[in-house]
Design a binder for these strands. Structure first.
Length: 432
DNA sequence: ATCACAGCGGAGACTATGGA
DNA sequence: TCCATAGTCTCCGCTGTGAT
């Protein structure tokens, strides 16, 4: 096995910190560099070896495979891969009552011939990543024609059984249903593995939906994980490059697809580390604290939804120490405090939301005014203070409706405010 | 005792978005 | 092109409160 490693690294013509090696497996490997196998009908055409691709065969047939092993101290952006060991237990929050360890997680990313999930969409490349013997191993399999799909899937099916968590980006919707349907199409049975999903698209959206222009993996990794892709082939180009290979048999353009898929896998691991740290409560120890106020609040709210109710106070306190925040963010945290019965801070946040929108009395300031009016009316029975907040909201609403066409919603809003004012006036008069 | 209203929370409809 | 997910919005019923 080590001679294979030496050979592959020689073929790469460089000594890198990343080894491309053949893993221990029941798959029989053949290599171009083996002269006695060069005549084999299933031999590999010359171009593949340049980027570490080997021929793999099993009882069902053959396919191509590329294995890349990263040492634990390898840094992909802000995070080193070894952090996954510490971070992984936190990811159990995705599946309460489960325990999670780094070695149980399988990272998966497909390259397919399209975006559909119907029978016409075929995964021509399957990338999997996992922790093994002190390395992060990335295995990428590729089929040269549809007849190789079954062998590749058989190999994948065998691998899956070793893991209990499946980590993807939008894999609940895209990757995994597609894999399942390909298993069925190839007669390999249904529900052969029921993974506990760790789909990072959704937490990414929860946290960054308003602070990043897009929650695409490539954007999140660049903006928040410190990852810069150089000469990356976009995923959307993968089908074209594969069809080009099918047409001319030249594997060279597929190297970019392998690299793209490999980077996706490393970024998935980085995201797992980031979210794992957060869920473990290692907020300051491991990650740069978000400098966007909204991100702090959204991160805190996400941690609460994930059942880590004790963790967000640090983020919320930090948020409170910031001088200027968007009124909409202030109101968001206030709503959470109101629900939790934390009235003191809720009132403070609503007041801040109004103060921070002196010139443009927007929807957040409007909401804050109404909330404060409710608070003063029902909690403190201070009808005069309640009235002053409603009056402010009413004046602005009136001004708005004079600027814009008063639709039914706006009219109903004004009517509700009038009713509220009338009621508060009655109550205020009674208490004199 | 009865009624009206406000507020709240749950259910369901709707929408935007990511994956190649 | 499709669809799971989460966020938003709307509707409805329940509860508490205050007025009659």
């Amino acid at each position: 096995m080590s001679s294979m490693r030496d050979r592959m690294n020689r073929l790469r013509g460089e000594s890198t910190k990343v080894d491309i090696v053949a893993e221990e497996t029941n798959i029989e490997f053949k290599s171009l560099a083996e002269p006695d196998q060069a005549e084999h009908p299933d031999r590999l055409s010359p171009g593949w070896a340049a980027f570490g691709v080997e021929l793999a065969t099993n009882e069902t047939g053959s396919f191509l495979r590329r294995v890349t092993r990263y040492p634990m101290d390898y840094r992909h952006g802000l995070h080193a891969l070894q952090e996954l060991y510490a971070a992984a237990p936190g990811l159990a929050a995705f599946h309460p009552s489960e325990q999670s360890a780094a070695e149980q997680i399988l990272f998966l990313d497909l390259e397919t011939t399209g975006l559909g999930v119907g029978a016409g969409n075929v995964p021509f490349m399957v990338g999997i990543g996992y922790m093994s013997k002190g390395h992060f191993v990335i295995e990428q399999t590729l089929i040269r024609h549809p007849a190789e799909e079954r062998a590749m899937l058989m190999y994948l099916a065998e691998k899956l059984q070793q893991f209990s968590f499946l980590s993807t980006y939008n894999g609940k919707t895209f990757d995994w249903p597609l894999v399942e349907s390909r298993f069925i199409m190839n007669g390999l049975g249904r529900k052969m593995w029921e993974p506990k999903h760790l789909d990072f698209l959704h937490p990414a959206r929860s946290i960054w939906r308003n602070t990043l222009v897009s929650c695409k993996l490539s954007h999140v990794e660049e903006e928040r994980l410190g990852i810069e892709r150089v000469d990356d082939v976009p995923g959307s180009l993968a089908p074209q490059l594969y069809f080009q290979y099918l047409a001319d048999g030249n594997p060279a353009p597929l190297e970019g697809v392998f690299k793209h898929n490999e980077t996706d896998m490393l970024s998935l691991a980085s995201l797992a580390i980031r979210f794992g740290h957060l869920l473990n409560g290692n907020i300051e120890a491991y990650i740069p604290l978000p400098d966007e106020p909204e991100e702090m609040v959204r991160t805190g709210l996400w941690l609460e939804r994930m059942g880590r109710k004790e963790l967000p106070s640090q983020l919320f306190d930090l948020f409170m120490s910031i001088q200027h925040s968007k009124p909409s963010t202030l109101v968001k945290l206030a709503a959470r405090d109101k629900k939790a019965g934390n009235w003191g801070r809720a009132v403070l946040l609503w007041q801040k939301a109004i103060i921070h929108s002196p010139t443009h009395f927007g929807p957040a300031a409007h909401e804050a005014s109404i909330e404060l009016a409710m608070y003063y009316e029902h909690k403190l029975k201070n009808y005069d203070s309640a009235l002053s907040y409603v009056n402010t909201a009413f004046e602005h609403a009136l001004h708005q409706s004079s600027l814009f066409r008063a639709d039914t919603k706006r009219k109903a809003e004004l009517e509700a405010l009038r009713n509220r004012i009338a009621r508060l006036r009655r109550k205020a008069l009674k208490t004199i």
